[in-house]
C-alpha cells in the first residue's frame, strides 16, 4: 500500500494549521492565569504605600493609609502580605498579616499594638470589606482562579472579555462577574459583578496603569457600589519590586517589631 498521499495530507495539515494556532485566542484558562499573575504576582516581592479614600452613600469621606509588603512563594501560588497601618490614628501601627494558601483557607493575623496582642482572624469569608472600604479582602489578595469557571464571551482589539461563574455560588454574594483583560499586558482593567437577581451592582476598575521596573502596575483603582453610590479609590505610591524581602518578615516576630520596609 502506498502511504504517500496520507503523508502529504499530514504535512499539508500541519503546515496549514500551525500558523492558525499561533494566531488564535489562547485558552481562557491561560488568559485568567496570566491576568492573575499580572495583577497579583508582579516580581518576586514588592511594596507600596496605599491611600484609600472611602466615600459612603451619604458622601461622607474617610481615609485609610497603609504600607503593604508582599512576597510570592511562587507565581500563581502561595503569598504573604504584611499591611502596616498609618492612618487614621485609631488604627495607627496596627498590622494585618496574611499567609495566602491555594489549597486551604488563608491564615490571617491582626496585631493590636496597644494591647501587644496577636489576634488570629478567621478567613472563612473573603468577601467582606477590607478596613471598612468597598474593597474586599479578595480584591486585595486576589481570588483564586480555580474558584470560578471561565468563559470567553468577547474579544476585541483591546480586551479579552471573560465571564466568571463561581463554582460554589452559595459562598459568594455574586452570581457572576465579567472581567476585561488588556490583551497587550494581561492586566485586568475592569470587573463588573452581577447579583443573584442579575443586576449589576459592583464595579472594580483600574483607573491608571504605569510601568514600574518593567511591570505594568495599577497605581489607581476604584470600587463602586452601583446600588448605593458609595465608592473607594485606592492610590498606590512608592512602589518597588524585587526588594529581596525575607520570608521571616511575615512571622509573629515582626508583628511585634515592624520592619523598616513597612514603616517607611
Amino acid at each position: 500500500m502506498n502511504n504517500r498521499p496520507v503523508l502529504l495530507l499530514l504535512v499539508f495539515i500541519t503546515l496549514f494549521i500551525t500558523p492558525v494556532t499561533v494566531h488564535s485566542t489562547p485558552e481562557v484558562k491561560e488568559i485568567i492565569n496570566k491576568a492573575n499573575n499580572a495583577a497579583y504576582y508582579a516580581g518576586d516581592d514588592g511594596k507600596a504605600q496605599v491611600t484609600m479614600t472611602i466615600t459612603d452613600s451619604q458622601g461622607r469621606q474617610r481615609t485609610r493609609e497603609f504600607n503593604i509588603l508582599r512576597r510570592d512563594s511562587a507565581d500563581g501560588g502561595e503569598q504573604q502580605f504584611y499591611v502596616y497601618f498609618k492612618r487614621p490614628s485609631d488604627v495607627r501601627n496596627m498590622v494585618f498579616m496574611v499567609h495566602k494558601h491555594i489549597d486551604r483557607d488563608d491564615d490571617r493575623w491582626l496585631y493590636l499594638p496597644a494591647l501587644s496582642l496577636v489576634k488570629r482572624i478567621a478567613a472563612s469569608d473573603n468577601r467582606t470589606s477590607f478596613v471598612g472600604s468597598h474593597f474586599y479582602y479578595e480584591d486585595v489578595s486576589g481570588r483564586p482562579p480555580l474558584a470560578d469557571t471561565h468563559e470567553l464571551i468577547e474579544e476585541n482589539d483591546t480586551y479579552y472579555v471573560i465571564k466568571n461563574t463561581p463554582r460554589a455560588p452559595d459562598s459568594v454574594e455574586f452570581s457572576s462577574y465579567t472581567v476585561w483583560v488588556n490583551k497587550s499586558n494581561f492586566m485586568p482593567m475592569r470587573a463588573e459583578y452581577s447579583n443573584k437577581t442579575g443586576q449589576k451592582y459592583r464595579l472594580v476598575e483600574a483607573l491608571e496603569v504605569k510601568t514600574i521596573q518593567g511591570f505594568p502596575t495599577v497605581v489607581k483603582s476604584r470600587v463602586a457600589d452601583l446600588l448605593d453610590g458609595g465608592e473607594t479609590i485606592s492610590e498606590f505610591s512608592n512602589i518597588t519590586y524585587n526588594i529581596g524581602l525575607d520570608e521571616d518578615i511575615f512571622t509573629e516576630r515582626y508583628l511585634h517589631r515592624p520592619p523598616r520596609e513597612a514603616r517607611q
Partner: peptide, 11 residues
C-alpha cells in the same frame, strides 16, 4: 494550641 478549624479559629 491555636489553629483554624471548621472555617473558624479554635484554641
Amino acid at each position: 494550641v491555636r489553629a483554624p478549624v471548621l472555617g473558624g479559629i479554635g484554641n
